[in-house]
Amino acid sequence: MAEQTTQPPNELDRAAEEAGFYHEAALNAAWTGSRFAIGALAFLYGAFAFAYFYLRSINSEGRWKGSGYHAPQMGYGVTILVLVLVSAVVQYAGLQRIKAGAKGAWQAAALVALLLGTAAVVVQILQLLSLPFQPGSSGFSSVFTDTYPVLLVSWLAAMLWLEILVMRARPLTAISFLEQPPTYAEAFAVQRFQSSLSAFTLVWNFMAVVTLFFFLLFYVL
């Protein structure tokens, strides 16, 4: 971009203006995109919830749970639920701290949330490897076997996102979360990070609700 120096100052203003325009659009896109992502996820998990209720209500051949029915291990279920919920809550609390300007507090919270979420993925894999029923032994066992791998992948993807956010936060100076940074570049970087973090928080909280919802379906109902 050697041309830059030869541009008249007017063109530099225009470039800054357009950069600002698309910066603003990108912030909004993160906001809109996270909402649509939740919509798509809701329909995806809606399909599984539909399968659950449909098979349950039909109870084909009396085998919604079947004669030799074994419940999935409650211990695993509760552990996973707690891990995911606590991860979401800790991360949400961290978000409130970084909004107040405390970058370090969020970083700590995010690391904890990352650890807990990853632990949930690991525990879920352990449970799927030691299910007390055959996948096809009943309608219930089928839907259970369907749903948790998808949840697991969603958790893993969310944790990947959180890890990226943690890495993105590192070069940002802590002071720039408290007051307007000196340059546009830094201000934009901080705002982009914040919008991405907000989008992540929304999606991760939504995933926590989905986890709770399926916990109620599979372990409580």
Binding site: G66, S67, G68, F133, Q134, P135, G136, S137
Partner: peptide
């Protein structure tokens, strides 16, 4: 079609 492996 679910050969001998009907789980039950």
């Amino acid at each position: 079609y679910y050969p001998p492996s009907d789980p039950e």
